[in-house]
Nucleic acid binder design. Structure first.
Lengths: 328, 328
DNA sequence: TACAGGACTGAATATTTATTCAGCATCTGC
DNA sequence: GCAGATGCTGAATAAATATTCAGTCCTGTA
């Protein structure tokens, strides 16, 4: 009649439900309680380990592809996540985020300083990080804010969540991502609040970054780049972008006016970070990724299998430095 | 896209659902299928053992009470099933049937001849017997049919189900349970079809019977007994009934006119069966049970815990044969 | 080539399960 | 003893899951 969460009660319910296959309704009659309570009893039984559900391991990674990427591109780390063919880009990001998060969690050591960029895939990944951890990280925003209305994908938000999830503090870069001119930009960089954070980026042990292209980056998406900017970047041979840094096929940042206006981690700072992980979902970034690797802007990749395959296919056609072999 | 029930697919679904706690909807997006199919994938994963659910054993029996019953009444077998207080009689029967069935299944050996009576609790029990078994039993109906409209609780139906579930054949006693007079009854008993079955009852290794009282038996319930019959039975000191045999406090069948008109297993046949199991739910039959045991009509009991406790309480007040000790 | 049979699918729907909510009981600190 | 907090309950309901069903796509046959 009264509150009775004895093990025997829980076992009765669990046995009838899981072993004998009765519906909660029927279990309720045996136990003389409401169906609602049976639901609660079962939840408790699972929690207390009276009911144990084990699932044969699912291997979410494509280890052979990881090996090939490491070998072909001289990466220190490659995480290739399985993904069903034909997923929408949203679901693909979700897959990469879901299964990539545990790998990332394993790669980041306690007390690390981590530079972090925004982006949808990174957002997805960060939101799947295990909740109860205390790594005492320092998570540092790697690029200013693209515009005033902050959305969930922005570095500011993503970094905050990461620090909260893995435990640690978040250092925000409380400035716009770009200024009208170099002078203003430099002035801003001198501000103590900004300078401290910006310098901190150089001492990071790890970074999580997305990779953009000239036709597909957050700056295009939000209409930040003017036609003149785009033309200039094109002239500079831009093939990709990381944290607002546009680079050419060798992974070098072009000397454009944009370069002088952006506020984000410097290319040289990035090169100094031992573990810069590019987080990518999709197969349309191969050239940008290859160039970034060539320029030492990236040391590792987290990518879906189709993306990895595309990358390998492209590089087979156009050799990259450090490539030791070519297929067939 | 197509039919792909690969283990990897199943593991993916199982992992996301059971380990990561996603809803089937969300799993569906990962796997690029409909929610309906996820449900099917998961069912298959459970079936194939990719998902394994284990439940800490629930002990459905009250072993100490069983021991006390065996000791106090000299029974060969006692199965006492736990049941929550305050269950309706229907739910109580359900409990006894559900958990008693596996004990019964263990007690009945392959190739046994089993006499069977009708009754709600026996019905419940039989319907919980494990489906896939082949014991090559001969299940024999122990009493004729009470009236023309056969219901699910009648021996005819219950016996058929038992034979089907445990494997074996069912011998029906295709006659009414009682005749207008002795002569007709005896004539019927001479019919080959009837005689063969009736004789077979004597050679049974086991029997499942219910226990009635004069105020609560199938014959009262269906209005078979006339006031004159009842008066006569009362005069004969009737305290209980098994398979249409009304007996007194010593477990002896009274010499009433009813005795000469009923078609069912004979008391002497019953006494010869090594394992006569009384299947009881509820606490209102103690006197009838005790008398039956005294008269060797029962050798075992399957009963709910409240019934067992009542039985022990009654017998503590009024000692029974074979009682070796008395409490306090 | 046409066509029946079988297997499989997702949309719609029926069924089952989890959650919300209001009511009641039991503490707790006056 | 009493207001307020806390916790537990089942009815109602929201949400999730299982099943039905009609259509599609094979595959083997005439």
């Amino acid at each position: 009649m009264a509150n009775d969460y004895s093990d025997d009660r829980l076992r009765l319910a669990a046995r009838l439900y899981y072993v004998d296959g009765l519906a909660q309704n029927e279990v309720a009659r045996f136990a003389k309680v409401s169906q609602a309570k049976v639901s609660r009893l079962l939840a408790l039984a699972r929690e207390r380990g009276i009911v144990r559900i084990t699932v044969a391991d699912y291997e979410p990674r494509r280890r052979e592809l990881e090996g090939q990427l490491v070998e072909r591109f001289g990466l220190s780390t490659a995480i290739v996540l399985k993904a069903i063919d034909g997923l929408s880009s949203g679901d693909l990001r979700r897959s990469v985020g879901h299964f990539g998060s545990s790998a990332v969690e394993a790669l980041i050591k306690p007390r690390d300083v981590v530079a972090i960029a925004g982006g949808r895939t990174i957002h997805e990944l960060v939101h799947h990080l295990p909740q109860p951890a205390n790594k005492a990280l320092t998570v540092v925003q790697a690029m200013g804010s693209v515009d005033a209305n902050v959305n969930a994908f922005d570095a500011q938000e993503v970094g905050r969540v990461m620090a909260q999830r893995l435990g640690g503090s978040f250092l925000a870069l409380n400035v716009p991502a770009y200024m009208p001119d170099r002078r203003t930009r430099d002035a801003l960089l001198q501000l103590e609040q900004v300078r401290n954070v910006h310098e901190r980026l150089g001492s990071a042990q790890a970074a999580l970054v997305g990779i953009g292209t000239l036709s597909n980056s957050v700056f295009i998406e939000r209409g930040v780049l003017k036609p003149a900017d785009i033309a200039e970047l094109e002239r500079a041979g831009t093939v990709g972008e990381i944290c607002g840094r546009f680079y050419d096929a060798d992974g070098n940042e072009g000397a454009t006016s944009w370069r002088d206006r952006v506020i984000s981690i410097e290319v040289d700072q990035l090169r100094r970070i031992p573990l810069v992980l590019g987080v990518v979902s999709g197969s349309d970034r191969s050239a940008a990724i290859i160039a970034a690797i060539r320029g030492k802007l990236l040391k590792g990749l987290i990518i879906d299998e189709a993306g990895a395959i595309a990358l390998l296919a492209v590089s087979a056609a156009a050799p990259v430095p450090k490539a030791r072999k070519r297929k067939g």
